[in-house]
Write a protein that binds this DNA or RNA. Structure first.
Length: 710
DNA sequence: CAGGCACTAAACATCA
DNA sequence: ATGATGTTTAGTGCCT
């Protein structure tokens, strides 16, 4: 019958405040942008398209990268328009660059001359595979993205670990790819030289062009791999992609880790690098990549994760556990040897066994200019990574400390954001105010702690120690409970997060959701356990609470039925409670309005991005911007409902409901009810029709809030 | 600070 | 007797 999975009676201090918030729901949003039902941010989208275009051209020059990186940097604290400007500039530059390059290439095809120093001109590398250095940087997640992760989200150490591992693995892969491409490039040049001497240009050029194409494709694949990695991170709620940069993962921009000096180093290496033989085995290092890419398919639709599978809070999402992870921990002890391949940067030589590898190492990678240069590069890379790691570690430490301190404070439980494919999400979210705002005198520039404690699946278990929360925000906004539950359904089902609603609200919801608008106690229990993972524990406690609430509140009416007693909702009674509550809470309203004023322009696009990336709360949390989307509508509805209530008892605040849709005769509770009860048609069981009131949530307007309703 | 509210815990009653 | 259901009371904490 009932699922009494965890009947520990000890419930004090249980997971009441695992108000984490990363709804990993809403995975229906497929790609980075496709998932959105309608493009909220056209300007940004254009930028994204441009970026993608640029990406496909594989022609990002350092200059463009600079611009785009600038763009990204600005994205954190500026609106997107500036960024699109920068992007346009970059795009123009790119076009010029492309033209120049085309001219160059044409010239070269006509006269393959001056090949001795094809790279002398950094800007137009002759016949160089148009792969920017930055593109090849071993950077899967840019430092800023990492920063985002660390700044905005509460990650468990394990997740950080996994993240880092994935990052490292991908970096390794990328590094190998870099080497591979570098090598290919050099070989091409060498071949070209030879061919020039041999005097057979046209054919070989064609070949070269083909190879170039192949390289580009491979690079593209690499990019896609990156992208998927990032996507998977997003899906886990580990990474936030901001709206102005939906194509962010497509931007293999060197940032932080690879400054220009590093590029130069690479060039040094490249120029110092003499031609090597054989490229045939190089693909060994690519195998993983290509298979990975092909398995997860570049098309974004293929990235869509089965909502059911992914809504599981634990999010077993397709984080393609890249086999490359094993690169590091390959049984063969030498870090430069793995999978039968020499892992010296840029080498990839196949070595049958370890001894032959050692032999190869000593012969091919002896102390010479090239090795030295490569070493320097590697040092730089490592240094940068270490720096970054140290920085992020520090940040993480600070976060942990901060959160630890804060989490012990009796804060209110944050409410998961309704981000699931909400059409007006950006609007509502941007207008929203965090429910915690009234209690948190945080300035917009400082992260709001409770927000970072959102119902993230990551931390739900770790949050269980947090003390009980007495306040249930949404109790005051009981209308949107419908949409909230509907929208966060999967989240609540899978994450052991206490829903931010009072028992009364939940019970009412359960009853209203039933076809008959009536439930037996047991059915109510079942609804609780079915809808909320949280209520699969401590059954004795919450069941008692349910019964207590059913008995206590006049709005719950017991009806003798053929099959026993069922409980119904006296909507009027229920609504009666609301005005008095909301009226006493003007500060909340004010806060909402004020927060609205500053967060709207800033965050509209951001919210959209969050929505499509299944990342509630986090992004704006770091900006101190409230993003509890449905709170605004909640309050609004609350107010509407309250006002309507004062005007007439007939109207429900939710348009989705027909107040007069009484189902069955309700027989009133045994106890005499208030005299007020006599005032209405009233012991009607108001029935909510089952249409989800999403529309309602979205249709509200920005009307002035009436604080004096009573 | 008082009062209201929500939550938790527990005692008790009723009924199948 | 037992468990489910329902009622009531008490204590506590948060918020206005």
């Amino acid at each position: 019958m009932m699922q009494e999975s965890g009947t520990e009676t000890k419930s004090n201090g249980s997971a009441l405040q695992n108000g984490s918030s990363s709804g990993n729901h809403l995975l229906e949003c497929g790609g980075l942008r496709e998932g959105r039902s309608n493009g909220e941010t056209p300007a940004v989208d254009v930028g994204a398209a441009d970026l993608a275009h640029i990406q496909q051209q594989q022609q990002m020059t350092p200059l463009i990268q600079y611009f785009t990186s600038k763009q990204r940097e600005g994205m954190d604290d500026r609106a997107g328009s500036e960024n699109t400007k920068a992007l346009q500039v970059a795009r123009q530059l790119l076009l010029q660059q492309q033209q120049q390059q085309q001219q160059q290439q044409q010239q070269q095809q006509q006269q393959v001359s001056g090949l001795k120093s094809p790279k002398r001109n950094d800007k137009q590398p002759a016949l160089q595979v148009p792969v920017s250095v930055a593109m090849m940087t071993p950077q899967v997640i840019t430092p800023q993205q990492m920063q985002q992760i660390l700044q905005q989200q509460v990650l468990s150490p394990q997740q950080l670990q996994v993240l880092l591992q994935q990052q490292q693995a991908l970096m390794l892969q990328q590094q190998q790819l870099q080497e591979f491409y570098k090598k290919q490039q050099e070989q091409l040049q060498l071949q070209l030289l030879q061919q020039q001497h041999a005097g057979k240009q046209p054919k070989e050029q064609q070949q070269v062009a083909t190879q170039q194409l192949a390289f580009q494709q491979q690079l593209l694949q690499m990019q896609q791999l990156q992208q998927q990695h990032l996507l998977s991170l997003q899906r886990q709620g580990l990474l936030t992609i901001q709206p102005g940069q939906p194509a962010l993962p497509l931007q293999p921009i060197a940032q932080g880790m690879i400054p220009t000096e590093l590029q130069q180093l690479w060039k040094e290496v490249t120029s110092a690098h003499s031609a090597e033989e054989t490229t045939g085995n190089n693909h060994s290092s690519l195998d993983l990549t290509t298979t990975c890419v092909s398995s997860s398919a570049p098309s974004k639709t293929s990235l869509i994760i089965n909502p059911h599978a992914s809504t599981n809070g634990q999010l077993s999402v397709h984080t393609p556990k890249r086999e490359s992870l094993s690169h590091e921990e390959h049984p063969h002890s030498h870090p430069l040897y793995g999978h039968g391949v020499c892992k010296w940067p840029g080498c990839e030589a196949v070595c049958e066994d370890f001894p032959s590898f050692l032999k190869h190492l000593n012969s091919e990678h002896a102390l010479d200019d090239r090795s030295t240069a490569q070493c320097r590069v590697q040092m730089q890379v490592v240094q940068q990574l270490e720096l970054q790691l140290a920085k992020d570690k520090e940040r993480l430490q600070a976060m942990m400390t901060h959160l630890h301190v804060k989490s012990t404070e009796p804060k209110t439980a944050p409410q998961p954001l309704n981000l699931v494919s909400s059409v007006t999400l950006s609007k509502s979210a941007s207008e929203a105010s965090p429910q915690s705002l009234p209690h948190t005198p945080t300035t917009p520039t400082t992260p709001i702690t409770p927000v970072t404690q959102g119902p993230s699946v990551i931390t739900t278990t770790s949050m269980h120690t947090v003390g009980p929360i007495r306040r249930r925000y949404s109790d005051k906004y009981n209308v949107p409970i419908t949409s909230d539950i509907a929208q966060n359904q999967e989240f609540y089902k899978n994450a052991e997060v206490r829903p931010p609603f009072t028992y009364a609200s939940l019970i009412r919801q359960a009853i209203l959701e039933s076809p008959e608008k009536q439930l037996t106690l047991n059915e109510i229990y079942n609804w609780f356990t079915r809808m909320f993972a949280y209520f699969r524990r401590n059954a004795a406690t919450w069941k008692n609470a349910v019964r207590h609430n059913l008995s206590l509140h006049k709005c719950f009416v017991r009806v003798e039925n053929v099959k026993g007693a069922v409980w119904t909702v006296d909507e009027v009674e229920f609504q009666k409670r609301r005005p008095q509550k909301i009226s006493g809470n003007p500060s909340l309203i004010k806060n909402m309005q004020s927060s609205h004023s500053y967060c709207t322009p800033l965050n509209a696009a951001l919210q959209a991005s969050m929505a499509e990336n299944s990342i509630p709360l986090y992004t704006t949390a770091s900006m101190g911007n409230p993003t509890l989307g449905n709170l605004a509508s909640a309050i609004r509805e609350e107010l509407n409902g309250a006002m309507e209530h004062t005007n007439s008892n007939e109207s429900d605040s939710s348009p989705g409901r027909s107040p007069m849709q009484a189902v069955h005769p309700v027989h009133v509770k045994e106890e005499p009810l208030d005299p007020e009860e006599a005032e209405g048609p009233l012991s009607l069981v108001t029935t909510a029709n089952h249409s989800p009131d999403f529309d309602h949530d979205r249709d509200y307007e920005d009307e002035p809030v009436n604080e004096d309703m009573e």
